[in-house]
Amino acid sequence: MTTTRTLYLFGSAAPPLFDVADVIAAAQAVGWDVCLGLTPTAARWLADRLPALEALTGHPVRSEYKLPGEPDVWPKADVIAVAPATFNTINAWALGITDKFVVGVVAEGIGKGIPLVAMPCVNAAYVQHPAFGRSVERLRGAGVQVLYGEGGFVPNPPGSGKPRDYPWMALLAAVRAAAES
């Protein structure tokens, strides 16, 4: 299949991240050119897999900003998906705290009008913190499609996560819909 669309897939350090190669392959199977970006902790979690992920995508995996004057090594994004998006990533993005590469790109993506899809991965204790709900609403108000609740990610009690049940296919369906709108 000819690849004509570019998906930036950004992941935070949460257990579903370990399935990212399968998600990349599924996206590629329907025509996406996938560029993988990770938070620094997520990159550390996948350190031994980074060469294979770069071979799979055909692009460097990025977790840090490029230096001024360096060329961008990725094509322009048609859609950006952030999943799994941790408590920290969701809150930093909503507040515009862009010290992390992935958060900086998606914060700028709002202003550039790039379709953005996010799916949290947080436990039920974190969602009780008042910042989380405000952050989800702030992102939604900025045009980000946040797949949280019915049809997206539903939190589990702390310590009882089910990473294999993370709704990756809901994310890819939302990415497809965002590209078509």
Score class of each variant (00 low, 15 high):
L171S: 10
Q128A: 14
P157I: 07
Y126Q: 15
A81M: 05
G133R: 13
C121M: 09
S63A: 10
L139K: 03
L56A: 11
T39W: 07
L9I: 04
P71F: 06
F87D: 14
G109K: 02
G149M: 03
P15E: 03
G111K: 12
T4D: 15
F18N: 13
A47P: 01
G11P: 05
P163R: 09
K112N: 12
L53T: 07
K112F: 08
A42E: 01
D33N: 14
P115Q: 02
S12E: 04
P71W: 08
L95T: 13
P40E: 05
E137I: 05
R134F: 04
A26C: 06
V127N: 04
D78M: 10
D22I: 00
L56T: 11
R5Q: 15
V103M: 06
I80A: 13
V154Y: 02
S63L: 00
P130Y: 13
L139M: 10
A83W: 02
R176Y: 00
N88Q: 10
V136K: 09
A92S: 14
G133I: 08
N91H: 10
I24G: 09
W168L: 07
P84W: 05
N91A: 14
D19F: 06
I90W: 05
F87C: 05
L50C: 05
L46D: 03
T39E: 01
T98M: 07
Q145W: 00
S12L: 02
Q128E: 14
V105C: 10
A124F: 02
A142N: 13
P84L: 02
R44T: 14
L36D: 02
K112H: 13
P115R: 04
L116I: 06
L38D: 10
P84A: 00
L56R: 14
T39F: 09
K66G: 14
D48P: 00
P40W: 05
D33G: 11
P60C: 06
H129W: 12
V154A: 12
L50S: 01
M1H: 14
F10W: 08
S63R: 06
T57C: 14
A13K: 03
T4V: 11
C121F: 09
V122R: 01
M169H: 15
C121E: 09
G141K: 03
D48C: 02
T39H: 02
L116H: 00
K100E: 15
E54H: 01
I97S: 14
P71S: 03
T57Y: 06
P60I: 08
F87G: 04
F101T: 08
L147P: 00
G141S: 09
V20K: 03
F132V: 04
I97A: 15
D19N: 11
G37H: 10
E70R: 12
W74C: 01
T6S: 07
P157N: 05
Y8I: 07
G113S: 11
L56S: 03
N123Q: 04
P60A: 11
A94M: 11
R49F: 00
A52Y: 01
